[in-house]
Design a protein around this nucleic acid. Structure first.
Length: 298
DNA sequence: TTCCAGGAGAGAG
DNA sequence: CTCTCTCATGGA
């Protein structure tokens, strides 16, 4: 199955920018488990009218429905160039946007996103990926696509009933109780996922932060990478570093950074954040004078 | 060996 | 309210 005419989209940057922990690149194809099936995605060379995405699924599903699903999951529907145009107010963010043109913010399944970012705290991406892979192997369902084997992300019900020592064996560390608590809240209905999806950003964030193990940063990740709230601004050590070094040029609290960034970048601050976050990972000399001089300070 | 990673909770002040 | 300490894990 193919999706043709996809404009302003880059598969690599979208899937490798630290928002999803479930994609693996093998040669020129990406394999990932998304909502209960393996998807294999490949992007063709860019043509005049955008790229073509080739799609294989481990599930037998209707092509039109799969297309509609992927257009939403990959955020292809959204007018991202317009959002980035409104955000790019200085030469630095402009350079990041140019360098990573086509990167999109995913709309991922809510429970998996909640669980994944609970596990992400005080942790690094390769290890987060490993924990999620082991949890899926242990508690998920086996899936295959053309000889590629992977496992569905475990449901809240399964994790709610899991023994703590089994979660620990997957490498969750002290986050095991947070994960299990969130799973139990979802199962009991105390944390209603359908309800969360109906809330605006401030209310959704506040609701999420009532859970132990979900602070402001993790709540913002969930709001941005699952609920589509582009006003969300996850402030991790990297984003803090970027704003202190480049924009504020002084030590700053997360509250100060948030106030500055939401005012400076506006409603699309979540997209700006993602481009800055991935740009500094792609470009080790991001803080050199050459880059610093891109931002004018009057 | 110490430091770090898409942090958050608990307690002290 | 802010500051500090601690939490489990593995790679650098």
């Amino acid at each position: 199955m193919q999706i043709q005419g996809v404009m302003d989209f880059n598969l690599k940057y979208t899937l490798e920018s630290g928002q999803s922990f479930r994609w693996n690149r093998i040669e020129d194809a990406y394999y990932g488990v998304v909502e209960g099936r393996i998807l294999k995605l490949r992007a063709s060379e860019k043509g005049q009218h955008g790229i073509t995405l080739s799609v294989e699924s481990s599930a037998s599903e209707d092509a039109a429905q799969l297309t509609a699903f992927l257009r939403h999951y990959l955020d292809i529907e959204r007018d991202v160039p317009r959002i980035l145009a409104a955000v790019g107010t200085d030469a630095y963010i402009h350079r990041a946007v140019q360098r990573l043109w086509g990167m999109r913010i995913l709309n991922q399944e809510l429970w998996e996103t909640i669980a994944s970012f609970i596990l992400s705290q005080n942790n690094n991406v390769p290890r987060i990926r490993g924990i999620i892979r082991r949890l899926s192997e242990r508690f998920g369902r086996e899936l295959t696509l053309e000889g590629y084997v992977d496992y569905s992300f475990p449901t809240a019900a399964v994790l709610a009933a899991a023994e703590s020592h089994e979660l620990l064996a997957c490498g969750t560390g002290y986050r095991a109780d947070y994960l299990k608590g969130a799973a139990q809240a979802v199962v009991s209905g105390e944390l209603s996922l359908p309800h969360l999806k109906r809330l605006a950003y401030p209310e959704a964030k506040r609701e999420l932060m009532h859970r132990k193990g979900i602070g402001e940063k993790v709540a913002d990740c969930i709001c941005l990478f699952s609920l589509g709230h582009l006003e969300a601004l996850p402030i991790d050590v990297w984003i803090k570093r970027i704003f202190e070094t480049l924009y504020l040029r002084r030590p700053a609290t997360p509250r100060e950074i948030r106030e500055f960034a939401q005012n400076y970048f506006g409603a699309g601050v979540g997209y700006a954040q993602q481009y800055l976050f991935h740009y500094v990972h792609e470009c080790p000399n991001w803080a050199d004078d050459e880059h610093l001089s891109l931002i004018s300070h009057e």
